[in-house]
Design a binder for these strands. Structure first.
Length: 276
DNA sequence: CTCAGTGTTCAGTG
DNA sequence: TCACTGAACACTGA
């Protein structure tokens, strides 16, 4: 479930469990896809015995800041999750659930000196675990755009960036070098609330429309983070609750028909009656 | 059996 | 160089 709010939830979990503690034991599963540029054994060596200073996040990337580098980067991919014993995780759209401990599909497990534990799962192996000496100064994080939760540009700067982009507004919102952390459902939610046709070219939007997109982006991300990415607690009027599945005749909260398009290779849910 | 999918990367094109 | 597009990646659950 990983867009910005879900990753922020994972970051908070890692902070709560790990910050100030020392990693006493590490098990990294043998997986040469999820471990990117580092062997599982080297990953274990880098973490064992280290103290966690903080858990940080930029967009969908999160990392543990250790007392000395290299530092582990965690990207959840489409199906990755972070768990602590007893934590519920989040119900995945795909229905993958974790039960027992460690959970199914665990790729990395950490033990701390106070008895705490963390497990990173990744069923479909599109997530990545990496080591970086300078997490924010080198790729992938150095290539990311602004984080809309903590570094949303002021309207003038937002408009200037947007005006340089010729792609459909939906594709630009999904571009991590524009806004880091926005994924498919947030992009659709923002455009639905801003009443913008997702196919329109970003640079063609009026100043008022761009201000509106910015404001809705800020609100959607803020509200989702405020309820800890628990889907059931998102406002009832959000498209989020009704966008899934492509059955004919699905409607938004006010009865407007939801339609589906493919933009930028992703399914886009939108309401033609409202979005212009 | 087939296919969609809350994501990223990379080759190819203009 | 840059912006952009589409395909590839991987694999579970429906």
């Amino acid at each position: 479930m990983p867009e910005l709010p879900e990753v922020e939830r994972s970051r908070k979990l890692a902070e709560r469990v790990g910050a100030g503690r020392t990693i006493t034991r590490v098990t990294a599963e043998n997986d040469d896809i999820v471990y990117d540029g580092v062997t599982p054994r080297a990953f274990e060596r880098a973490l064992r015995g280290r103290q966690v200073m903080a858990a940080r996040r930029h967009g969908k990337q999160m990392w543990l800041e250790l007392d000395r580098g290299p530092h582990p980067l965690i990207h959840l991919g489409m199906t990755g999750q972070l768990y602590a014993p007893g934590s519920t995780g989040l119900a995945l759209e795909s229905g993958i659930k974790a039960e027992g401990w460690p959970p199914r599909f665990t790729k990395l497990q950490l033990w701390f000196d106070d008895g705490g534990e963390l497990a990173f799962t990744n069923a479909r192996r599109l997530g990545r675990l990496r080591l970086r000496d300078d997490p924010t100064g080198e790729p992938p994080i150095s290539k990311l755009g602004f984080d809309p939760l903590v570094a949303l540009p002021r309207p003038a700067a937002f408009i200037e960036r947007a005006r340089r982009r010729r792609s459909p507004v939906k594709a630009v919102l999904l571009d991590q070098s524009f806004a880091a952390g926005v994924g498919n459902w947030i992009a659709d939610e923002v455009l639905y609330q801003a009443r913008i046709d997702p196919r329109r070219r970003m640079a063609d939007l009026s100043e008022a429309e761009l201000r509106n997109v910015r404001a809705k982006l800020k609100n959607v991300v803020r509200q989702a983070v405020d309820v800890d990415a628990e889907n059931d607690r998102y406002p009832s009027g959000w498209l989020f609750h009704r966008r899934w599945g492509k059955q004919a005749g699905i409607c938004d909260a006010k009865g407007h028909t939801i339609e589906h398009l493919e933009i930028g290779g992703r399914t886009t849910a939108w309401v033609p009656a409202l979005q212009r």
